[in-house]
Computed example of a mutant assay.
Amino acid sequence: MENGFTKEILKKVRQIEVRTNRLVNDSLAGSYHSVFKGRGMNFDEVREYVPGDDIRTIDWNVTARTGVAHIKKFVEERELTIMLLIDISASGEFGSSALSKREMMAELGSVLAFSAVRNNDKVGLILFTDFIELYIPPQKGRTHILRVIREILFFTPERKETDLRVPLDFVNRVIKRKCVAFLISDFCLGEDFDGTLARLSHTLRIGSKRHDLISLMVSDPRETELPDIGRITLEDAESGHQVELNTSDPAVRRGYREIAEENRRKIHHTIRSAGVDLLDLSTAVSYLPPLLGFFGARRRRMRR
């Protein structure tokens, strides 16, 4: 790799680190910690009983040995495993705003990774198309996180198409202990939309029973609204299929919008019916307020 390209990569990774670290420090760190709890409680120490302590925590062996009542103290086992499942298929390269969908997915992954490392959690990465392009096992530490971000930003996939079942099946097979898995994708499901969605539903249900599965759906406004610019040719980035549309015709623009909105409703229904949380994001709008609101809603739900 040439030195210039290496410097360019390092500069971009550093920019992402600075930007996402600031967001985490200012806004997300507390929300993340309060939403994603540890796996349970670990024994910490034994101390003498004082009035008001829960008698169920009395350590009878120590009490009998010393002749003085002692209780067991526990601390929360904070460490979690966070898995980032990021779609790097060809449809993610599209962007009509400041960020392409893949760039936004990279920032989301970076923010979540830095939030995790601040809480001493492990972070793993899966980059996928219709197969596993890259797997980085969960680890801790800044150096590891910077590698994760570098791969999210610069990894070149071998294939173009998407199969969302692939990373979910992989997580279920490889990650033995329960993890928090973020599935970050544009959910472009190809021509057999309904069939693909039905097959995905089954996989989502299995994944949500084994792990805390959260879907982040990233879209571009042009995927819903066509501009009035005359005749255009649209090409599916993954399949190469082309269609010509007359965008000056209001009926064409309306039909395009209705199909896109109906597909979005079907995706939402499928994900939520499988017991999976969903956050719907657009490249045209800052992801931070919706992400904070999402964490807040999860926190309130946990308290009920």
Rank of each mutant, 00 (worst) to 15 (best):
V171H: 02
V171N: 01
V171W: 02
N172Y: 07
N172F: 05
N172C: 14
N172I: 07
R173P: 07
R173V: 03
R173H: 13
V174S: 11
V174F: 05
V174K: 14
V174Q: 08
V174M: 11
I175P: 07
I175R: 05
I175K: 08
K176S: 04
K176I: 14
K176G: 01
K176D: 08
R177P: 11
R177L: 01
K178A: 02
K178R: 15
K178G: 10
K178M: 01
K178D: 00
K178F: 00
K178H: 03
K178T: 00
C179L: 01
C179F: 07
V180N: 10
V180W: 02
V180M: 12
V180T: 12
A181R: 07
A181V: 03
A181T: 09
F182H: 12
L183V: 04
L183I: 04
L183E: 06
I184A: 10
I184D: 07
I184L: 06
S185D: 02
S185M: 08
S185I: 01
D186V: 06
D186L: 12
F187L: 14
F187D: 06
F187E: 02
F187V: 10
F187W: 03
F187H: 07
F187T: 09
C188L: 13
C188E: 15
C188K: 08
L189T: 08
L189D: 02
L189Q: 00
L189M: 07
L189G: 04
G190N: 02
E191R: 15
E191F: 08
D192P: 06
D192I: 10
D192G: 11
F193M: 05
F193H: 00
F193V: 03
F193N: 01
D194E: 09
D194K: 14
D194N: 14
D194C: 06
D194T: 11
D194M: 05
D194H: 13
G195N: 09
T196F: 07
T196S: 14
T196H: 14
T196A: 15
T196V: 15
T196D: 10
T196N: 15
T196M: 00
T196W: 03
L197I: 04
L197W: 03
L197D: 02
L197M: 06
A198L: 09
R199A: 03
L200M: 08
L200T: 10
L200H: 01
S201W: 10
S201F: 03
S201P: 01
S201G: 08
S201C: 07
S201Q: 15
S201D: 12
S201E: 15
S201H: 15
H202Q: 09
H202Y: 10
T203L: 05
T203W: 00
T203P: 08
L204A: 02
L204I: 05
L204H: 05
L204D: 00
L204W: 00
L204Q: 01
R205F: 09
R205N: 07
R205D: 05
I206E: 10
I206F: 14
I206A: 11
I206C: 03
